[in-house]
Every structure is written in structure tokens, then in C-alpha cells.
Write a protein that binds this DNA or RNA. Structure first.
Length: 791
RNA sequence: GGGCGAUUAGCUCAGCGGGAGAGCACUGCAUUGACAUUGCAGGGGUCACUGGUUCAAUCCCAGUAUCGCCCACCA
């Protein structure tokens, strides 16, 4: 079923009062002033489904509605059908009608409307069924004259017969019998209007919906012609998923489960934390539904599914049993007749009996699905599988199914096994169509994952979904994002190719902790951090964080920096031991990446895993999860300093318009012992990364140099003759202004006594350190600026 | 009508009480080099609005606006 808003009409008809009754109809405005007073001999009723008028059992008004107080308890006539057999129905009071809506009077058709059903039940109003299962007006039963006499008899006697006998009464007049409900509607509207029982309004009335054009004055019509009041109205109507046909509410016999009783332990399980929702705010949705749960209609008129385990005796007595035999046993006991006992013997002997007939209905698909966690494991038998795998652990699903499935698995699991079916319900976002709408089969606006697989690869799509699996409720899948992650897979693949070309293999004898080169120790330490953050992300269901951390580590650390830093070693004139360590590190990190990324990109990583570790290592999915082996803070500080230095120089070179190919020496001024040592260690790498033939230390800034303030030193690129001093001045001025802004901000903050006294000490200290850093940088920048000015 | 949620860069989305982030798109430069499905560098945001709490608010609270989803639905 799908609810769709459609353009409907609302008609207004007169139900004439019986026995010549009239009343003063008084309408008041908001201030209580009378705006209309007239004597009426009818009550005005609005409806969007005039064909259901035939089944009306009463007209209801609100008890506080003064307009109708004088006619409550009187009878009015349904203005449809042969005049001599028209039915009279009582005017009753009920809380349901809204006095401010329409005329304030509602016709009650208990068999064809959910609200009316409740009103009818409260007030002992008969439920007359008007349609058959095809949505056509009933054509069964006796002639209308006889049937309507039965209905009149009910009103006259004041005694409500049992539901089944009321249901046999067909109150559809011969003229409408067998018509589809829509045809009947049209004919009924025409007939009532022709008889003058439609509410008429001037044609200028603003409320008018589609109406027939009135006669023009020259054709004999009046200037202010009156036309039937038909309001255009948006109606939410249920349509069949497959049939695309309007579904009519209709009274039928169904089986219901007592959902309230089932829900109680399921609510407690979540309240007491035995089952948790992730993200946790979804438990609100769960509680909201479970605490307002309605009886659950579990029978369906379909031919597939679990059949309802109910058998009927010859007198319609109900026998419920796990098996047919059980039902026959109960029947034999109940009837104790030779026939019933014989039937039991027949069934016991394995032969068929037709003493009982089985209910043809099947269970709601969600009823059967709710059994899934344990019925798949052999339940109701006590199987080893059930013992081992129930309760399950984590249910991963989308929020749109919390009502339908999650809640019901909870109810059924607790009812039948006494245990919650899972300890965690992980709720992920829902992929929406490009237009932001929920994908739906009937709208045909879905995205076929297979098309995405064809275009971008399964790994890319999977990684994208993981990367976007954040807390949000829905996500519009951005194909640009998928393309980006496809490129990520390619990047990893090419890195592996590079490793292979350089003979960097996974070496089972390599012990990461023994690596000596700071570059290797750095990437191994970074790997340890990545292992931590990815593991943590997965364990806390933050898959997007895990994916982002992987992306940054693999691309921005391993590919962008480690492999570039390793090139001089692998391809230069380093000694054999250094080369071997770089190869082993590369192979090792790649092999660990293959495992770390395997949950996110299973295909490419499986290939890499096998390729690196050899066919005997087993599949990546079953491999030991990575573990951080090296944590070297010095190596991290060293290499991060190096990366910062290279980036700063590249940035300045690009900004100064120095062509990437040109070679410029680097002179470092103001280096302390640590920086001098670092420089010495990394000279060849720096030289290669920034195209500086010579890297040296000096006490003074060389003439005509670009000056870059970096950490505690000034990096000088002597470019006399090439450099544009105006541009250099501008660059430094911008740096100085940026720096000054930070200093200003921090000074203000630290100058605030309330901040210093109220903020945590470490925050204050942190800000002080920052300020000191900026001040030192500012001093150097100003010196650099002064040197330029001096030239 | 009831409930839930969203509003952050051009787009798709993270973040979240102490200096605004990613991918894509955009700009400049680079092509015999693992990778142009690339590299280097860069531009771009009053974190919807209005109040409040706080030493400090994109983040917490209240209200407003807009949008969305679920449930129910006025004859």
C-alpha cells in the first residue's frame, strides 16, 4: 500500500428530517455574533465518497454543538434510492465530529471507514457492508425493498443484531447493484442533485470546485445562479502497490495479535540497555511506536506465506493447533460426537478428512519475518545452530524498517525464546534517489547498484557507502564521490605496482621494531596510528571515520610522502642495508594496508594480500587484524618537520612564480643544534624534494633571497636576479598581517581576566604557547621584511 | 495533527564548547619519472536567522524561517 495525495471532490447533501421536523439553524462567527439564522428541514452532510451513503447507520454531531442540539435523537433520511424505501437513521452525539469542520455533522458508515467504525461501535450503530472484494457495489441478497425493510426494523426495534447477520443485509438499491464504486458515486451524485437535495451556493462562491456552468441570464438563468457546492479537496488515498488501484476500507474478519502484550518486554529490553540502537537516538523512534502500538492485524488474503493455524468445525467453532492433528484432537474433545472422533481417527491414520476446514488466510509477511532470527536456525527444535547462533549480535539495517521488522523481531524473539535477538541495532542512512526522494519501485526513481558497479567497480561503491555511513538519516549518492574513491583504489594499485618495480616485497622475517631509518620508523608509526583509528572507527560503528582515516593514511601519507621520500633510497646510491630496509618497510606497510582496507575494498585488497604474502598466507578476510608495532615520537617529529619544510618551500616557490624545474639552493639561517642535526640527516632528501643542489647552514641571510619563516629558522632561497621583489614584499606583508591577526586574537583572549581564571589551566597554557610561537614567527617575519626594504 | 530530523564551501557531505574540514568542481603550474583515474600550489564559508546560557557558541538551550522523513488523517 502506498498513500498518495490525489485531487478529490467533497460533495454536500441534504439529509431531510423525518416527521416534518424543522429547527432554527444558527451560525455564529468567532465573536459569537449570529451570521446566519434560518429554519431548516434537513441536516447538511459532506462526503468525499457519496456511494457510502447507502450504508450510513447514523448522523453524528458533537455533543457541544448548539446548532443541532434540538434535533439530536430525531431521525433523518438518506437521500438516495427509491423514495418509498428510503431509510431513516438517527442523529446521535459523539466526540468524533469536529464542529468547525464542514457542517459539523458526519454521516457514520461503520463498515467503510476507520473512524466511522469506532463511532458506530461506541454507539451501537449497525455496520452495513456495501461492496464486494472487487470494489463493486454488492449484488447479492434479497431485493432492495426487502433488505431496507430489515434495516428499518433494526432502527425501529433499537436492538442491534450480531455482526454476521447485519453483514448479510445488502442495502444497495437495484439501480446501483453491480456497479463499480466510482460509477455508483457518479450516478448517486447525479440523482441527488436532480432531486434538489444537493447543497446549492451562488456560483461566485469562492469555495467552488469543479461545477457545471450555470445558465446565462439570456438563456433564462438568474444572474446569481446557484450551483451545487462541490469543493476541490486534496485527499490522501491508499493505492495498491501492484494494482495501482484505490484501496477501499471495508469490514472483514481478520486475525489480530495482541501487540501491546508482546511489546511490553521488547520495550523493557531497550529501556534496560540489553539491546542498543546505534546511533542511540533511534530508540526514540522505537519507543514512540512501541508505546502506542495498536492490535496487529496478522492475517492476509494471499496464497503464499505461512497459513493461519486455525481450523473451523461444522458450526464454525475455532480450533487452533500446531498441526492439523492437534486441531482434530481438540475438535474430537469438544464435540465428542462419533463424527468428530471418526475424523480424528482418519487424520491419525494419515488420511484426509473434511470434518474441519482450515482458514485459508496466511500470516502477514512481517509476522513470518519476525521469526527470522531463530526460525532460520531450526526453531522450534532445539538445534545446535540455535544454541550457538542465537541470540545474534548486530543487526544492520535502515530506519525505515524499525517499525516493520526490528520491533517485531524483538517482540517475537522475546516471546518465543525469552532472549533479545541482538544486542545492537546499527541504523545506517538510506540512499536516496538523485532528487532526494526515497527510492521506490512504483516511482521507478531508484539507482541500480549493478549499474554503479559496472561504472565504478564494486570496491569503489562499497568504500563510498562506508565513507558516507555517518549519523545522518539519508544521503543523496554523489557519483563524483564514487569516482573519487575509484581513483583511490587505482592509487593504491599503482603504489603496489611501484613497490613491485622496486622489488619491495613482504618479508616475513622483517621486524618493524628494528627498522633504523627515521623515514621508515615514521611511516611505521603512522601505520600504528592508522591501525588504532581505523579499528576504533569500526568498533564504534563510525565507518565514515574509519574510511576517511584510511584514505588519508594511504594517499596523503604513504603515497604522497613515504614513497616519495623512499625513492632516493630505493633508486639512489644508498647502501644495501638501507635499501633492503626501505623495501621491507614498503612491502610490510602495503601488506598491512591490504588487511586494514579489506573490509572497505575487499576485491582489490584480496588480490594485493595474496600477491604480497603469497598463496599460502590464506585470504585477507581471515588474516590476523593489523596491530601497531612501532611508535616513535622522535621519528614522527623529525619527518613532520621535514614535510613542513618541503611544503613551505614549495609553497613559496609556487607563489613567487619560480618554475618548478629551476634549481635553487637552500640556506638555513638561525638553525639550532636540533635543526642542524635534522638537516644533516635529511640533506639528500631535501635536496631532491625541493630541487636544491646545495643545502647549507649560514649565520646571515644571503643577499637577494626569498625568505621563508619556518619554525625556529628562516629558509633562504637565493634567487637574485630571478625574484620579483615586489611579489616577495607582498608575500611577506601578507604573512605578517596573518600573523598579526593571530597575535591580536590571542592577546585579547589572554588579556581577559575571566578567561584566565575560568578556563581550564591547560587551555590557558595552550593559548600562551601559541601566542609565544606566533610572536617568534612575527619577529622573524619582520626581520625578513626589513631586509627587503633595505635592498 | 503527532513524532523525528536537517539547514556548514558552487555540489555531495563530515565535524562540533577553546584557531572552520573532506571529496568533487574551480584557478595556476607541471607530462620520458608507480599513477593525468596523476603531481605541486592555490582561491572559496557571518557554519539559516533571532535571542539566551558561558570566560568562550558553528557546536548547548529557546524561538523563527525553510526543507525533509515516519505515523495518523477531518467527514
Amino acid at each position: 500500500v502506498e498513500n498518495i495525495e490525489v485531487d478529490g471532490h467533497m460533495w454536500h447533501f441534504k439529509y431531510p428530517l423525518a416527521d416534518g421536523v424543522t429547527y432554527d439553524y444558527v451560525e455564529k462567527d468567532e465573536d459569537g455574533n449570529e451570521t446566519l439564522r434560518e429554519t431548516r428541514n434537513y441536516i447538511s452532510i459532506a462526503t468525499t465518497r457519496p456511494e457510502t451513503m447507502l450504508g450510513d447507520g447514523a448522523v453524528a454531531v458533537h455533543p457541544s454543538d448548539e446548532r443541532y442540539a434540538s434535533i439530536v435523537g430525531k431521525l433523518c433520511e438518506i437521500p438516495v434510492g427509491p423514495k418509498e424505501h428510503r431509510r431513516l437513521i438517527p442523529i446521535i452525539t459523539d466526540e468524533y465530529p469536529d464542529p468547525d469542520f464542514g457542517s459539523g455533522a458526519v454521516k457514520i458508515t461503520g463498515a467503510h471507514d476507520f473512524n466511522d467504525y469506532e463511532v458506530a461501535k461506541r454507539n451501537g450503530i449497525p455496520l452495513y457492508r456495501l461492496m464486494d472484494t472487487k470494489g463493486a457495489m454488492r449484488a447479492d441478497g434479497a431485493p432492495y425493498a426487502d433488505e431496507s425493510a430489515k434495516a428499518k426494523q433494526i432502527v425501529a426495534s433499537g436492538v442491534l443484531p450480531d455482526a454476521n447477520s447485519v453483514d448479510t443485509i445488502n442495502l444497495v438499491p437495484e439501480d446501483y447493484r453491480g456497479l463499480d464504486r466510482f460509477q455508483a458515486r457518479e450516478k448517486i451524485v447525479t440523482d441527488i442533485t436532480a432531486e434538489g437535495l444537493a447543497i446549492m451556493v451562488p456560483e461566485t462562491d469562492a469555495r467552488l470546485g469543479p461545477v457545471k456552468a450555470p445558465l446565462a441570464p439570456e438563456e433564462g438563468g438568474e444572474v446569481r445562479a446557484e450551483v451545487p457546492l462541490v469543493e476541490a479537496k486534496k485527499i490522501m488515498q491508499p493505492f495498491g502497490d501492484r494494482s495501482k488501484v484505490v484501496i477501499e476500507p471495508m469490514l472483514t474478519d481478520q486475525w489480530f495479535a495482541d501487540a501491546e502484550t508482546l511489546a511490553r518486554p521488547a520495550i523493557e529490553a531497550v529501556e534496560q540497555g540489553r539491546t542498543k540502537f546505534v546511533p542511540s537516538n533511534w530508540d526514540k523512534t522505537y519507543f514512540e511506536w512501541m508505546r502506542n502500538i495498536q492490535p496487529w492485524c496478522i492475517s492476509r488474503q494471499l496464497w503464499w506465506g505461512h497459513q493461519i493455524p486455525v481450523w473451523y468445525g461444522p458450526d464454525e467453532t475455532i480450533f487452533c493447533g500446531r498441526t492439523e492433528l492437534e486441531a482434530y484432537e481438540k475438535a474430537a474433545l469438544h464435540y465428542s460426537t462419533p463424527k468428530a472422533v471418526d475424523a480424528l481417527a482418519t487424520v491419525k491414520a494419515g488420511r484426509a478428512s473434511n470434518f474441519l476446514t482450515r482458514d485459508p488466510d496466511v500470516l502477514d509477511t512481517w509476522f513470518s519475518s519476525a521469526l527470522w532470527p531463530f526460525s532460520t536456525l531450526g526453531w522450534p527444535d532445539e538445534t545446535p545452530e540455535l544454541d550457538q547462533y542465537y541470540p545474534t549480535s548486530v543487526l544492520s539495517t535502515a530506519f525505515d524498517i524499525i517499525f516493520f521488522w526490528v520491533a517485531r523481531m524483538m517482540m517475537m524473539g522475546l516471546h518465543f525464546t525469552g532472549k533479545e535477538p541482538f544486542h545492537t541495532v546499527y541504523i545506517h542512512a538510506l540512499v536516496r534517489a538523485a532528487d532526494g526522494q526515497k527510492m521506490s519501485k512504483s516511482k521507478g526513481n531508484g539507482i541500480d547498484p549493478l549499474d554503479l558497479f559496472d561504472e565504478y567497480g564494486v570496491d569503489a561503491v562499497r568504500f563510498t557507502l562506508a565513507a558516507m555511513a555517518a549519523q545522518g538519516r539519508d544521503l543523496k549518492l554523489d557519483t563524483g564521490r564514487i569516482a573519487g574513491y575509484r581513483n583511490f583504489g587505482t592509487k593504491l594499485w599503482n603504489a603496489a605496482r611501484f613497490a613491485e618495480m622496486n622489488d619491495a616485497k613482504f618479508d616475513p622475517n622483517f621486524e618493524p621494531a628494528n627498522a633504523k631509518d627515521p623515514i621508515n620508523r615514521w611511516i611505521l608509526s603512522s601505520l600504528s596510528d592508522a591501525v588504532d583509528s581505523v579499528s576504533q572507527g569500526i568498533e564504534s560503528y563510525r565507518f565514515n571515520d574509519a574510511a576517511a582515516d584510511l584514505y588519508k593514511f594511504v594517499w596523503n601519507q604513504f603515497c604522497d610522502w613515504y614513497l616519495e621520500l623512499a625513492k632516493p633510497v630505493l633508486q639512489g646510491d644508498a647502501d644495501d642495508a638501507q635499501k633492503a630496509e626501505a623495501r621491507a618497510t614498503t612491502g610490510y606497510v602495503l601488506a598491512e594496508i591490504s588487511k586494514l582496507m579489506h573490509p572497505f575494498m575487499p576485491y582489490i585488497t584480496e588480490v594485493l594480500h595474496e600477491h604480497l604474502r603469497g598463496p599460502d598466507a590464506g585470504v585477507a578476510a581471515l588474516a590476523q587484524w593489523p596491530e601497531g608495532k612501532v611508535r616513535d615520537a622522535d621519528a614522527i617529529a623529525d619527518i613532520e618537520w621535514l614535510i613542513g619544510l618541503v611544503s613551505a618551500i614549495r609553497s613559496a616557490r609556487a607563489e613567487m612564480g619560480i618554475t618548478p624545474g629551476s634549481e635553487i639552493d637552500l640556506t638555513v639561517v638561525g638553525a639550532g643544534a636540533e635543526t642542524t642535526a635534522r638537516l644533516a640527516r635529511q640533506t639528500s632528501i631535501i635536496s631532491r624534494m625541493i630541487r636544491a643542489p646545495k643545502v647549507g647552514v649560514a649565520d646571515a641571510v644571503p643577499a637577494g633571497a626569498v625568505q621563508i619563516v619556518y619554525a625556529d629558522v628562516t629558509l633562504c632561497l637565493p634567487v637574485a636576479g630571478i625574484v620579483d621583489f615586489e611579489a616577495e614584499t607582498k608575500r611577506l606583508d601578507e604573512e605578517i598581517s596573518r600573523n598579526a591577526k593571530e597575535i591580536d586574537r590571542l592577546e585579547k583572549k589572554l588579556g581577559n581576566a575571566k578567561f584566565v581564571s575560568n578556563a581550564p589551566a591547560e587551555v590557558v597554557e595552550e593559548n600562551r604557547e601559541k601566542l609565544a610561537g606566533y610572536q617568534a614567527e612575527g619577529a622573524k617575519l619582520n626581520e625578513a621584511r626589513a631586509r627587503i626594504a633595505a635592498i
